[in-house]
Design a protein around this nucleic acid. Sequence first.
DNA 1: GCCATTTGCTTAATCGTTAAACCATTTTGC
DNA 2: GCAAAATGGTTTAACGATTAAGCAAATGGC
Lengths: 417, 417
Amino acid sequence: MINVFPGTSTIKIPAKTPAEALAIIPNHTFPLFTVTLYYSGLVTSVKGWRFYYIHLVNRNILHLPAFSIQFIRKWFTKKKISLKDIALKAGVSAALVSYVLNGKGRKNRVRKEKAEEILKIAKDLNYQPNHLAKSLRSGKSFTIGLVIADISNPFFANIARIVENQARHYGYTVIYGSSDEDAVKSMDLINVLINRRVDGFIIVSTENSGEQVYHLMEQHILFVLLDRYFPEIKTDFVSTNNYKASFDAGAHLAERGYKNIGLIAYKSKMFHMRERIRGYRDALKKNKLAFKKTWLQEVQFNNAKTEVETAIDKMLLPGYTVDAIIFATYSLAVNGLKYINRLGIKVPADLAIVSFGQADVFDLYACPITYVMQDMENLGKAAVDILVKKMENPKEKIHEVLLDAKLIKRESSRIKK
Amino acid sequence: MINVFPGTSTIKIPAKTPAEALAIIPNHTFPLFTVTLYYSGLVTSVKGWRFYYIHLVNRNILHLPAFSIQFIRKWFTKKKISLKDIALKAGVSAALVSYVLNGKGRKNRVRKEKAEEILKIAKDLNYQPNHLAKSLRSGKSFTIGLVIADISNPFFANIARIVENQARHYGYTVIYGSSDEDAVKSMDLINVLINRRVDGFIIVSTENSGEQVYHLMEQHILFVLLDRYFPEIKTDFVSTNNYKASFDAGAHLAERGYKNIGLIAYKSKMFHMRERIRGYRDALKKNKLAFKKTWLQEVQFNNAKTEVETAIDKMLLPGYTVDAIIFATYSLAVNGLKYINRLGIKVPADLAIVSFGQADVFDLYACPITYVMQDMENLGKAAVDILVKKMENPKEKIHEVLLDAKLIKRESSRIKK
DNA sequence: GCCATTTGCTTAATCGTTAAACCATTTTGC
DNA sequence: GCAAAATGGTTTAACGATTAAGCAAATGGC
């Protein structure tokens, strides 16, 4: 029982005709109200909708039965329509409505006419199920947590896009967060998302986050590692074959006649970076090329801009000058190429370039850059596919997916003259 | 009452010492179990945690009281610890635990020692509150829905990043989705997020999405429009002053001595695009420069690549040849510059360039590009700030924020020789 | 005509958390 | 010395949906 005090209340109702506006509040549900229709004129012409004002006038304190109360409260508190409201209007129990709306009507022996009636009411009232309640009850939120290094990095933005699409395809929603390559931030983020009861994670790991992985395993939380993984931990992962990609880049430069090949990478213990370095070293070895210590430069992530510049300086010292540079990531390449521009070095006449990273931007460079194209489409898709499989079948075996990158050969690594 | 059938069960427990492992399951709660500790050896060395196996042996069908059941079920079903579990262990009611953990202990007259005890237990059991239940009960999900055109576009990726940070600062989580500039997709997305009970939206509107805005208003759903808005609809929005930005770009080229200035924009009825065109036209007028129809080219979004090329071709026709081009968006610029590269046109000797868009990439171009820098930081922050204000105070007045862009003048628009 | 089955629905428990209302004690004020 | 207030809790209902279990009434079989 709720008390409705004397007075006049006005409710604004969008409808197509005055009659429709009145019909929305069934008259008989307000036995003690005087309902006055009052047309307000055209407020908006969108799709032919107009607004009408309904006056509710009552003189006494009303003690209304639950049925009326529900509807009045809905209008006044702007609450959303629930299963119960539909049930009240249809004169059935909430359970029945649930059955019908979930397509379990036949299975639970609901009369066809009743089912149709319920569906119609649900549509009229524009019922939107409360996903929170659904999730709480079922223990499944149909949400995936995506933890990436930085969404403003084009590589991850693209991955995020693909993950989002693929997830929606399975009926999942994505919550993302950026870790900034920081293990602590990453863990905080994961905890927040665990509290939101995401069903599983897709994680781009950061340096020193091995224990996070153990922690998730201990708690039986489902996840798939993306782009980076830990060879010593048995987990699901989807990654590029970085060794091969890097090897191919080196071999390509060797084949094109370059002899002094340098690599600029990040200083990191992470496997994907070590693999890129290992691939480069092996490519030189296989092709019987010399290697000088100054040709392998590892720069700090936090100070990349200046360190890349000094790295390039060192590579260009007389005596051990490189004639080709491989950049191990996109951001290194952007910083490096800017500097090379400023130095007035001609690519590829003075210096050949191969870079990891993304296509789009490298087209803007005066000389189109040869780059390692990762299969982002399949990286993202595979990660979601595996995660969904694991969520649907907890006994699913471990998937370790290594995708080959493709070397896109262009002007910046043309045959050396 | 739950039946536990005869047999042996093994539970894997992470702990630091065998004693600790046993302590986790309080012995006295299993009066009919034989509990055997069995050390499994080092499984992982992470932070000194080891795994221990606990054997539960029972001979009869057990009808255990609720307290034991709780714990057994937790282990077997891998369920998370809830308020109730803490309450059981502490010997108090769930409500009390809730009060304590929400810092309302003092307000609700909970003894200090009891509060500390509860906090300790919560920590020991690694209690993580269930956000779904919280939201369901409180009606607030502390989640913001971010609807953008395409997260793989660097502008929006950056915005997403800023929105995420600012939202976390207020304790909100972000769910995002890409609309692909498609009003139908955008509406679908919004509906999905409404069902997830996001507290409010930050929306980058698409063409023809005016009615969506009305729809949200009718349903009393909170939102802030970002980057694009509808001048005829009274809503909160945060946007760049596109007219001024475009005017400044045109005026700058005029000042530098260019006389035949063209603009390549998207064919769109959206206000932000119309404003960019209007700014360009007015800049020409103010500077008493000629305008030819072929100098204003509007290309289709879905076919941008080829249409940009024909647009440039038309601008370069003999007789009405432009000496400067303004690109109205980043993606138009990328496509246009690639084509200009291919044509062998020298920037700025043959053609000056000014573009809307983002800094990073334009540095790679042989000649640094003059560009309109939008204040992304404040765009994103302001959107979140306004939304949070509205969520905390529904009577908050409408905020209409127009931020000025900054023209970064570089080599591509140097003084005409 | 009578029991068994089917039909068509309702009831009640549950998920985890919150918040108002309630209830004994004990302490305080004058 | 006695009412009022403070203390330290508990109980209960609610949020919105799902689902097993239960229960009348109608129908079917022989």
